[in-house]
Design a protein around this nucleic acid. Structure first.
Lengths: 172, 172
DNA sequence: ATATTCTTTCAATTATTATTGAAAGTTCAG
DNA sequence: CTGAACTTTCAATAATAATTGAAAGAATAT
């Protein structure tokens, strides 16, 4: 297989994976393209390679920057912007984990907290209420577990990142 | 808060969560409804409570059964079918993990395996090819890690999960 | 100040995905 | 077998989400 074909397959596969995880196909493809590009790409490069519009590139690139997995790169003497992806896949996973925890886990935990304070009422039997609170409590305990697991992974990765960074700073 | 309101909020919240994870809102809501219902529900019950059509209920309930998190319940002397959700949320998580590994991780690993065999060619420099294979190798190694982590979690029994893993995850 | 080059926005359009509902299929009692 | 009760399918429709492209906005050079 040749390089160009391999790159296309990766972009396609990454796009499919993304859509299974609630990320739009194009956003995942822009990410994949930046991952397989050794150099930072301009908006026009991305437009051309993925055959999508300028506005589309702009929106998706900014969303990827929001996730923290793509950076803007400015070159001296160049007006236009270039974009490059975080290549350390471990760090990519951590950043995504971090964002998803904030965007999804936290809201559902808030809802669970609210509804766990259900009160007995004339329209429901105590048994019904108890069954419900028991169910919610188990979901809550799982959410807590997921939350602390995520914290630990994020912290572990930060340590790892910091240590490699420190090594870089103090060569020898 | 009263029970009915609490149930509605849970169904709504679960639906929102689902759509962030690539599960259709309605499918997640059917699942939530079954989670908060002490007894198994018929197709008509679900239609009425979620205000959706018969065909819609049928499709989503079958998808949930494919995931292994909803069961059909037959009652002697009753022609129609009743449905109930797996209430052990840990088991729900395991079953979902299992399915997602099969449906998503395996395909991307296959693609990665194929494209890692990229050959040098006239249209690309050895440096480009090397950068690409290096990137792919790191994604592969991460996918392998994710895959074996999933395996371990799936295989692990509940006791191990709760005691050992919780301790591991607890920041010290 | 004006032109130039690039970025951003957003209403309109297009594409994708979910939903409906009626018809066909199934099962079973009589 | 026939009819009643229920389930499944699927083409049509509706709802949602992504995409475009042109116009407005920014930044810099002349």
């Amino acid at each position: 297989m040749q390089l160009d074909e391999a790159k296309s397959k990766f972009i396609e596969g990454w796009g499919t994976l993304g859509s299974a995880w609630g990320v739009s196909r194009t956003m995942a493809q822009v990410h994949a393209l930046l991952l397989v590009s050794p150099n930072a790409l301009s908006t026009e490069d991305i437009m051309e390679q993925l055959q999508i519009s300028r506005g589309n590139v702009n929106m998706n690139v900014r969303a990827l920057m929001d996730w923290g997995i793509v950076r803007k790169e400015l070159r001296p003497g160049e007006r236009r912007e270039f974009f490059s992806a975080e290549k350390d896949i471990h760090r990519v996973a951590t950043l995504i984990l971090q964002e998803r925890r904030k965007r999804e886990l936290e809201p559902i935990m808030r809802v669970l907290g609210e509804i766990s304070q259900v009160e007995p009422s004339p329209t429901s039997t105590p048994e019904e209420t108890e069954a419900f609170t028991k169910m919610i409590a188990s979901v809550q305990s799982f959410a807590n577990f997921a939350n602390s697991a995520a914290s630990t992974l994020i912290k572990a990765d930060e340590n790892w990142f910091l240590s490699t960074f420190m090594k870089l700073m103090r060569p020898g």
